[in-house]
Design a protein around this nucleic acid. Structure first.
Length: 83
DNA sequence: CATTTGACGCCAA
DNA sequence: TTTGGCGCCAAAT
């Protein structure tokens, strides 16, 4: 089991309408200080079964998205997290 | 093995 | 509030 696989596992469990920070994901994945790595891992994720758009920064800002931040906003809006 | 590269986080100024 | 700097970690180089 690699760290990246556990990250995907954690992200897959995030319910619609909710979000987790990169830090939280790292913590739940077993490496509380690997938050930065979580970002680089998700940036390379193109698996649609992984709702990586539900992972945002701990300061409340959205962070990045490999299909464009505007897409991320759009989806989060549609899911009701963002107005 | 040593470096570099990021969808980050935190703090001091 | 914004910026700069540093710490952190997996992957790629």
């Amino acid at each position: 089991m690699t760290f990246s696989l556990r990250v995907y596992g954690v992200v897959k469990r995030i319910p619609q309408g909710k979000t987790l920070s990169y830090k939280e994901v790292a913590r739940r994945a077993g490496s509380p200080r690997a938050h930065r790595a979580v970002g680089s891992i998700l940036s390379k994720n193109f698996n649609n079964t992984v709702p990586c758009h539900r992972v945002i920064r701990s300061d409340g800002r959205l962070g990045g998205y490999n299909r464009g931040v505007s897409k991320k906003k759009y989806i989060l809006k549609k899911e009701g997290f963002l107005k």
